[in-house]
């Protein structure tokens, strides 16, 4: 396993390649991150074919906008994860998507984790294992904020909790995950 410094040096190299529109760089990017980004899109839109189409959009966005990525503001993968989430969430909110899918009622969340958020796909077993160790109310907040595109105030309203609690609960969930992963 690489040290944190080695990881950052590797990422700096990758960023330089990407900014030069170097094909090898995008190859590395794809090989290292496509499954992760696709997983995020799957969590958001729920269907592999739609998620793969979106992943294509995500890579085009990375290609077009890499010039505006500023390493001082965060790691490359955080930037890519946010582009990916926004792309998925935009799709989730778009008209043509809602037409195909029953509009998901917000109050389904009140009782905890949604059924479909923990599909039994083999690929997501890792997530399921991870999430099983979280308290349901903690995971719900992360799921809504991170994968379903709810704003913090929407999450607070849907769950009937104060805005400050949304923030601290998200933090508690991530702290819990931190102890599980490391």
């Amino acid at each position: 396993m690489l040290t944190k410094e080695e990881n950052i040096a590797k990422e700096d190299n990758l960023v330089a390649l990407l900014k030069n529109k170097d094909r090898q760089g995008y190859n590395m990017l794809y090989d290292n991150y496509a499954p992760t980004l696709l997983g995020v899109l799957m969590k958001i839109v729920g269907e592999q074919e739609a998620a793969e189409d979106l992943l294509q959009d995500v890579f085009v966005k990375i290609w077009n906008n890499i010039g505006s990525y500023d390493p001082k503001k965060g790691r490359l993968y955080t930037w890519m994860l946010n582009i990916t989430r926004n792309t998925g969430i935009d799709k989730l909110r778009s008209k043509d998507f809602k037409k195909g899918e029953q509009n998901r009622p917000i109050d389904k969340y009140v009782n905890g984790i949604r059924e479909d958020s923990l599909t039994s796909k083999t690929d997501t077993i890792g997530l399921k294992k991870l999430v099983e160790q979280l308290k349901p109310d903690q995971y719900t907040v992360i799921d809504m904020l991170y994968f379903k595109g709810y704003s913090q105030s929407e999450t607070a309203e849907a769950l009937g909790i104060p805005l400050g609690t949304v923030k601290t609960r998200a933090r508690a969930a991530l702290l819990e995950l931190r102890t599980i992963v490391t």
């Binding site: 794809y30 992760t36 790691r75 993968y77 994860l81 690929d123 890792g126 991870l130």
Partner: peptide
Amino acid sequence: EANLLSLAQAAAVTPHADLK
């Protein structure tokens, strides 16, 4: 950041072979 990356990585899905 590392935390959210591992959350996302836990959900990773292998893309279709010709997607690349």
